[in-house]
């Protein structure tokens, strides 16, 4: 079943890709192929390759149990939040809770995770900003 869904998604992607390729317009002809042909070939390749899992799917992989999926979604959401918060909050304010959360979900104790978050944030700031001289977002409080 998983493979069939993959095949359908890939097929739809291929169709969309070829459809978009036809809308690419070249202002004037520079080479015999133009900017459309190769994309169409690629779309064709994807479409053709997508047929195999549709027709002869592999056995489905072991998807995680619902609880685990919840963990994964939570961790991924934390990563998205971190990506969005990094600039407005600044490196330290964003990193400490993010690192602590990940550590906690991976099995660290609550107190130890918080301590780890603080230490790793300070350590990385030291390595990246002080040793390597890269700029980290400083946020409203200046760190």
């Amino acid at each position: 079943m998983s493979d069939r869904i993959l095949g359908i998604c890939a097929l739809l992607f291929a169709l969309g890709f070829v459809f978009e390729a036809r809308r690419i317009s070249a202002p004037f002809l520079v080479d015999p192929l133009g900017p459309q042909t190769f994309p169409m070939l690629v779309g064709g390749l994807i479409g053709a390759a997508a047929l195999w899992p549709l027709v002869r799917p592999d056995p489905a992989p072991a998807w995680p149990a619902p609880g685990r999926i919840g963990e994964l979604v939570a961790a991924f959401a934390a990563m998205v939040l971190y990506a969005l918060a990094l600039r407005p909050l600044g490196f330290l304010l964003a990193t400490v809770p993010f690192a602590a959360f990940l550590a906690w979900r991976l099995g660290g104790g609550p107190g130890a995770s918080l301590l780890f978050g603080l230490l790793v944030a300070l350590l990385l700031r030291f390595v990246f900003a002080s040793l390597l001289g890269l700029s980290l977002p400083s946020g409203p409080l200046g760190f």
Partner: peptide
């Protein structure tokens, strides 16, 4: 080293590398 120390650190290095 336990995973709860290792994996968050790796994640952060990946983030900072791309951010930089």
């Amino acid at each position: 080293l336990p995973a709860w120390i290792l994996m968050p650190t790796v994640t952060l290095v990946a983030f900072l590398g791309i951010y930089s």
